[in-house]
């Protein structure tokens, strides 16, 4: 069966050794940072493309965010997604975020309107959590608004076509995997490790530059979680003990392992 799949992605900064904040602690200082798609969602995009390669159909990518977030939509197109939808609002500038309830409401409304025009999505994929906010909820809220089931933490997806379609999804547990079986249409929150995302090809890049991105303006609904400021987590200051240089340090390393009782 041909599958209509939607993936919700979020643009996030890619900080290095430490996260630097603006002087007033209201935001991450992104002056010298690159940007990326949250890793879990990169895998969601890859999985959507693979499912379409296997079953036919098409993959669409959706984001809510500032104008710059179009870059992440075009990246998804460069690896094989065919449609992109950008939800924006004048209040969404830079790294500003909406409350999870407002984000979920806008995404759910957008999905409902796409579905009204083009037909329902069989599968909607989210990341287990966004890399920056880590709210652990937008996917669940959207699924509930659409009246569909969702399971998070998914590391393997198999779609079967019998009986109107179903998806078998696995998630890691302490002893192995838990298996869930959902009837389509369904929603899944996935984790990195589900697959190894491909890199864009040159034709893919060219296509993504020219692709049309559908633009929608949403109004935020009121939400109850208001972010006020950020702080770096306390970092312990360590005095590093140098055990030497090169292979000559091997005896000192083994001494250390022995001292710790690990030999």
């Amino acid at each position: 069966m041909a599958l209509r799949i939607l993936v919700c992605v979020k643009r996030v900064p890619a900080p290095g050794a430490r996260i630097t904040l603006t002087a007033d602690h209201s935001a991450i200082d992104v002056k010298n940072l690159g940007f990326t798609t949250s890793p879990h969602e990169e895998c969601a995009v890859e999985e959507a493309i693979r499912l379409v390669e296997r079953h036919g159909g098409e993959a669409t990518v959706l984001t809510l965010g500032a104008a710059e977030a179009e870059e992440q939509l075009r990246y998804a197109i460069s690896v094989g997604v065919v449609k992109a939808v950008h939800v924006s609002h004048p209040s969404l500038i830079g790294e500003s975020d909406w409350d999870p309830q407002a984000t979920a409401a806008a995404l759910a409304d957008t999905i409902a309107s796409i579905e009204a025009a083009d037909g329902a999505f069989d599968l909607i994929l989210f990341g287990n959590e966004s890399a920056d906010a880590g709210g652990f909820q937008v996917g669940v809220r959207v699924a509930r608004k659409l009246g569909r089931p969702i399971v998070n933490g998914i590391k393997s997806i198999t779609v079967s076509s019998g009986d109107g379609g179903a998806v078998t999804a696995q998630r890691e547990s302490t002893s192995g995997f838990e298996v869930y079986n959902l009837r389509l249409p369904a929603v899944l929150g996935v984790k990195e490790g589900l697959n190894l995302p491909r890199y864009p090809t040159l034709p893919g890049r060219l296509k993504s530059k020219k692709a049309e991105v559908a633009a929608i303006v949403a109004e935020p609904v009121a939400g109850g979680l208001l972010t006020e400021s950020f702080d770096n987590a306390a970092e312990l200051v360590v005095q590093t003990t140098m055990l030497g240089t090169g292979e000559d340090a091997a005896p000192a390393i083994v001494d250390l392992i022995e001292r710790l009782g690990l030999l």
């Binding site: 890399a131 880590g134 006020e228």
Partner: peptide, 19 residues
């Protein structure tokens, strides 16, 4: 007024929960 972790634990967020 609460503090929660973002970025997998590398950043703390001060926020207000109204409910």
């Amino acid at each position: 007024d609460l503090t929660r972790v973002r970025w997998g634990g590398s950043l703390l967020e001060q926020s207000k929960l109204v409910a």
